[in-house]
């Protein structure tokens, strides 16, 4: 944000409606426990629901009405991304929003309607390029230093096995030369930040609920300060990440240092999501270490989103540039 800007971070009535309707629908369509049964096929439910999700208007949220979108802006996209993060929705839903901004003409119309699908790809080290939940996606949104749109079949993909086994991941090599960063790459990074901040918040909710109900020594573990303080810190980190993502969204393109605002949002959100997911495992005790408990799903997804076309180091370089 720039110097004299005054920002109201409270959602407008319309923004609250968007958050409530998307949040409510996603809670029904994509409850987090879906990822338990479908280990290895995460993203399947999203694929099956793609047109329902398109009907929520999420994909064309930031596109003018004249171009077939909903006519909102980055703040509303950030609200939607946050809700997607809360339910650990496939990153391909964010990739679809991103692809809409990179595509043109009929391609864009088809993406808004959910008739064609997009997925994220991002380079690793040593020339590897990874594709995340790319099954059936015709487009890839490639996140390197910048962001660019490619046809998925322009590459030969081989299956890989991700730490987050709820998502299919594939690999190719070599990765194309990185493109120059421009505003759209910052906007996409901000959406990923918002999803991470939503994840940080729902990891907190999960741990808080457990701490109220699990009893040891004759009392809920949430009455012990070691647990209570850890939960309070989780809440603070989630709020910090969320507030920064909102400020970056409202002020974007209005003359402040957008790259730095977004880098801060991404750094804070990655930090909050990973730390909160770890803390939630600890709050769950032995149960937290099992595959059966949802806590690990948050951890794996937090690492995946935090590293998607970025890294803590990359954001730090942007922040200090």
């Amino acid at each position: 944000m720039s110097r004299d800007m005054i920002i109201d971070l409270h959602p407008t009535d319309e923004q609250q409606m968007i958050a409530d309707s998307i949040g409510g629908m996603l809670a029904d369509l994509l409850p987090v426990d879906r990822l338990r049964e479908e280990s290895g096929h995460g993203g399947a439910r999203e694929r099956a629901m793609w047109s329902d999700i398109a009907e929520l208007g999420i994909f064309g949220m930031g596109v003018p009405e004249a171009d077939g979108g909903a006519g909102y802006g980055l703040p509303e996209e950030v609200i939607a991304a946050r809700e997607l993060g809360r339910v650990l929705a496939s990153p391909s839903l964010l990739a679809q929003i991103a692809a809409v901004h990179l595509a043109e003409g009929e391609d864009r119309t088809a993406l808004i309607a959910g008739e064609t699908r997009a997925a994220f790809a991002a380079p690793g080290l040593g020339g590897d390029l990874f594709l995340y939940d790319g099954e059936g996606a015709g487009w890839i949104v490639l996140l390197d230093s910048g962001a660019s749109l490619h046809r998925t079949d322009a590459f030969e993909w081989a299956d890989a096995h991700a730490m987050d086994e709820t998502l299919g991941i594939s690999r190719t090599s070599p990765s194309p030369a990185p493109v120059t960063r421009h505003a759209i790459a910052d906007q996409i990074s901000l959406l990923i930040s918002a999803a991470l901040s939503g994840l940080a918040q729902s990891a907190t909710d999960l741990a808080v609920d457990y701490a109220k109900q699990r009893e040891q020594f004759g009392q809920p573990i949430g009455s012990f300060q070691a647990i209570k303080h850890s939960l309070a810190d989780m809440r603070v980190r989630a709020d910090a990440a969320d507030s920064q993502a909102r400020v970056a969204a409202v002020s974007f393109g209005l003359g402040g240092n957008d790259t730095s605002e977004v880098a801060a949002a991404r750094w804070l959100a990655g930090n909050a999501a990973i730390k909160n997911a770890k803390a939630s495992i600890q709050v769950h005790g032995g149960m937290g270490f099992t595959a059966e408990c949802d806590a690990h799903l948050f951890l794996k997804r937090a690492h995946l989103l935090a590293g998607l076309g970025s890294s803590r180091r990359a954001e730090e370089r942007r922040l200090i540039a």
Partner: peptide, 22 residues
Amino acid sequence: AKLAGLRAEVMALRSLTIASVS
């Protein structure tokens, strides 16, 4: 890296303050 992190965190503090004023 240390200074970048601190810069991110003071921005977060500013944003938390804006949230609080809101």
